[in-house]
Computed example of a mutant assay.
Amino acid sequence: MNRMEDKVAIVTGGARGIGRQIVETLSREGARRIYSLDMGIGEYDLPNVQQVQVNVTNRDQVAKFVENVKNEVGKVDVLVNNAGITRDALIQKMTEDMWDAVIDVNLKGVFNLTQAVAPIIMENGKGSIISISSVVGVYGNVGQTNYAATKAGVIGMTYTWAKEFTRKGAAVRSNAIAPGYVETEMMATVPDKVLQPIRDKTPLGRLGQPQEIANAVLFLASDESSYVNGHVLEVNGGLRL
């Protein structure tokens, strides 16, 4: 039996990178419908994937999208908060615009989607909310004050939602995944002289693959993790920054 059979999922930042791998993995596992949200459109040829252009920072767009989902399929089983950006600089050089942009997408965007979708999941009686944090949100990193703040904030929201969404008896689980450094299109632009020290510090001696993050999402999205709630799953090869 496919692990996502009859489930309806929403994945933000689904057009490329880790988000795309998550969408494809949930699709292969038999999800009835996957809504892939992004500012752009990816190249998908999967009958159970519907791409939607949504800016997660725009509350009106989010509300309209969620209302459409409710009208179309009547339920949501899984929400994956994956959309995120970086605007790196040492704090002395970090501008207010750099701070605001990252806070808006990585923190407010997660808040917006979860606030809109959680009531539908609770009506369903059970479901899974998975938010993508980062190794940087757990251990911090030079030049990423804004990013670290948002990814640590995602963990704090996850712990809170694990308590809030189950108060009235619904089995709505909230968990986070904290990936390490993963080989994505974004990482391809980073010089090897920067990446090699990260590999050297990682006990497994390599960067992660998008599929390895998607596998963790699949576990938390499926009923296999039915007793996992309020947990941060570190998928980082043992890296400690």
Rank of each mutant, 00 (worst) to 15 (best):
M4T: 03
D6N: 15
V8E: 00
V8R: 04
V11W: 02
G13N: 06
R16F: 01
I18W: 06
G19V: 05
R20G: 04
R20A: 07
L26D: 01
S27V: 10
S27N: 14
E29Q: 14
G40S: 15
P47Q: 15
A63H: 12
E67L: 09
E67W: 06
E72M: 11
V78I: 12
V80G: 01
N82T: 01
I85G: 04
T86N: 13
I91N: 11
M94I: 10
D100Y: 09
A101N: 12
V102N: 01
N106Q: 06
G109P: 00
V110C: 08
N124A: 02
G125Q: 05
I130N: 00
I130C: 00
I132G: 00
Y139R: 08
G143A: 08
A152V: 07
G153R: 00
G153A: 05
G156E: 05
A162P: 06
G169C: 05
G169R: 08
R173H: 07
A176G: 02
A176H: 02
P179M: 03
G180A: 06
M187F: 03
D192V: 07
K193P: 02
I213Q: 07
A214S: 12
A214D: 03
N215A: 13
V228I: 15
H231W: 09
V232E: 02
G238P: 12
